[in-house]
Nucleic acid binder design. Structure first.
Length: 585
RNA sequence: GCGCUCGUAGCUCAGCCGGAUAGAGCGGCGGUUUCCUAAACCGUAGGUCGUGGGUUCGAAUCCCGCCGAGCGCACCA
């Protein structure tokens, strides 16, 4: 465990135990609320604990008295150089410079594994993301879900969870039948027929032309005049296969690879839906009833009729939800229940789904279903991704299929590169709108976070390269730097940067627990800002420069810090699936 | 009408399962600058955290009402 805040939480709890053993503190207190965190204001110290505040009531002591007693106990710890009671009863701890320098050694020893955590204890988590309908290439919005899901999966892995990346193929509904008809249409064109514009409700994009041509070549005209019922299943399979091929190419271009692809059609064919619903049925959670129309917005063709309903209201949903369509087939919800039951039975008590925000109204019912099919054990977290506003130099870059300015995910990746796409997609909370400016993301300026963070890494690498020239005989490997004397690192900003690097494991754990990969982007920007700030100090004050030709020893100490920065930036970028650059072009 | 997501500085947004004087970038204002290759740097002004209650030692954070924005609302996914 490298999260020193968790380590010191243990230290505090141990100290409290000592007080209890000495009869200075009441026994049997609930210590769960005792937290150790960084103080808002660094001048307050390095660590702060609320122990006295949260325990005072149960202990029957004034917070300040408890704090003073705890302070005495904590002073015994070797790394602690000062303990102060502050405010209403906070305890601020200050750790010695030597402790922090040792933390930097730990960073160097760990390399990009710095921040890896045992928090998850190998617990399995299923992250389902993208799951775009196989009806065409991915657009930019899908790309956001892809990046968020992928980074979240990597983040959880770094935090010690065992993650399965999964894609659910919606290959069973009316949409893929429309896709099959669209393919048939293109197929007839490929065979030489001249048809008008694609009928309403079909997929008019030209991405079906190649699969249609392939179909015409390999299977000839046998489906050209045949009745729909004869060719539809076959063409549907061909079309889905082709579209999944497209999607996988797009994902590959983005560096996203799923471990498991689950087919809705296959799930239905194997009877998973029947089994899941039989299970619910046996527990009395399914009934036939008539739903009220939504108040204030009654659909025009509303007709009260009995439906097969799941008792979602028993699990926190607002109304009971239909499982069968009027034609007798399953609703999407019914198959989704089966799918999540399947995931649960495959060993995933914790499931995360990444969806577009327009599916927000669907969250409650599926969470209700997960509770129902897992006897309350399973947990579903849904991350909703808001829209991506594509801009070009501040102007809206409107996407319109008709005007031919439809921008696919692939277009954007080809234009700015996968690493830029990935990073930018993670610079906002998933549920906030995201502006993606094709021009600004390539600017080399302070307000372009991709550049700013990459530049920190490149600058650090640049300093290392210079060091190799300046001190040709020195061993600059991170292992060697970890052994170097670091006493020279004494400037306040240097120590502050070390503390930021030392706090990295906590950032990883907090982001992982919250299922919020975007926090890593902000953490990286802060570390980059501190590093650039330190570099800039060297411009005016020559004695603060990293490389001092006349002082190899101090240079080595500072190179340890520079190398530490590069490693932490690389550690964070690896979570994002972004390659750290060694120099800016 | 109901539900979901949200409402923080002029703009774009952070704010870590409640914590100590609310942060960053851009923009504004005032300076500095060609420097370890580095496309700048330093300083400064600016906020009733939509609003009204409540819980708490303590609320931007949790609960309720209201206002406003986006999304969704049987049988599409």
């Amino acid at each position: 465990m490298s999260n020193l805040f968790r380590i010191f939480q243990g230290v505090v709890i141990e100290a409290l135990g000592q007080l209890q053993a000495q009869g200075k503190l009441a026994p049997g207190l609930d210590l769960d609320k005792v937290a150790v965190e960084p103080p808002r204001d660094p001048s307050h110290g390095d660590l702060a604990t609320n122990a006295a505040l949260v325990l005072s009531k149960g202990a029957g002591m004034k917070p300040r008295d408890l704090a003073l007693a705890l302070a005495d106990a904590l002073k015994a710890h070797g790394a602690v150089v000062a303990v102060e009671v502050a405010g209403p009863g906070f305890l601020n701890l200050r750790l010695g410079d030597g402790f922090w320098r040792d933390q930097l050694r730990e960073v160097l020893k760990a390399g990009t594994a710095w921040g890896d955590s045992d928090l998850g204890q190998g617990q399995t988590i299923n992250v389902e993301y993208v799951s775009a309908n196989p009806t065409g290439p991915m657009h930019v919005g899908h790309g956001r879900g892809a990046v968020v899901g992928d980074a979240l999966a990597a983040l959880l892995e770094k935090a010690g969870f065992q993650v399965t990346r999964e894609y659910y193929i919606n290959d069973a509904g009316a949409q893929v039948e429309a896709l099959a008809r669209s393919l048939h249409y293109r197929y007839r064109e490929a065979l030489g027929e001249t048809l008008g514009p694609m009928p309403e409700g079909l997929y008019p994009g030209d991405y079906l032309m190649a699969p249609a041509q392939a179909l015409a070549t390999s299977e000839g005209a046998r489906w050209q005049k045949a009745p729909e019922a004869d060719w539809l299943p076959h063409l549907r399979d061909r079309a889905v296969e082709a579209m999944m091929g497209l999607i996988k190419e797009d994902l590959a271009a983005l560096g996203v690879v799923h471990a498991v692809f689950t087919s809705e059609r296959k799930l239905v064919a194997e009877g998973a839906v029947d089994r899941a619903l039989a299970d619910l049925e046996s527990r009395g959670l399914i009934y036939t009833g008539v739903l009220e129309p939504p108040k204030g917005k009654t659909p025009e063709d509303w007709e009260p009729r009995p439906q097969t309903l799941f008792r979602a209201t028993q699990f926190g949903d607002d109304v009971d939800r239909p499982l069968k369509k009027s034609d007798g087939s399953w609703t999407y919800f019914a198959t989704d229940i089966a799918y999540h039951k399947d995931k649960f039975e495959r060993g995933f008590a914790t499931m995360i789904d990444v969806w577009g925000a327009d599916h927000g109204g669907y969250v409650k019912r599926l969470q209700a279903a997960v509770k129902a099919i897992s006897a309350g054990v399973g947990e579903l977290d849904v991350k909703l991704c808001q829209m991506v506003n594509l801009l070009k130099d501040g102007e809206p870059y409107k996407m319109s299929k008709r005007a031919g300015t439809f921008v696919t995910l692939r277009d954007v990746i080809d234009e700015v590169g996968k690493d830029v796409v990935r990073f930018i997609m993670l610079t906002r909370k998933n549920d906030a709108h995201l502006d993606f400016d094709l021009v600004k993301v390539r600017e080399q300026s302070r307000d372009n976070p991709v550049f700013y963070v990459q530049y920190a890494h490149a600058r650090a690498c640049s300093v290392m390269r210079h060091a190799a020239l300046m001190f040709p005989k020195a061993d600059l490997s991170r292992q060697a730097l970890a052994q170097a004397p670091l006493d020279g690192l004494a400037d306040a900003d240097e120590l502050a940067l070390i503390k930021a690097l030392a706090g990295w494991p906590r950032q990883i754990e907090a982001a992982a627990l919250a299922h919020e990969p975007h926090r890593i982007a902000y953490a990286l920007q802060e570390i980059a800002a501190q590093f650039h700030g330190l570099w800039n100090k060297g411009r005016d004050a020559a004695h603060l420069r990293f490389l001092l030709p006349d002082d190899p020893a101090l240079s080595m100490a500072r190179l340890a810090l520079v190398q530490g920065v590069a490693l932490v930036v690389a550690s964070g970028l690896s979570v994002f699936g972004v390659v750290p650059v060694e120099e800016m072009r």
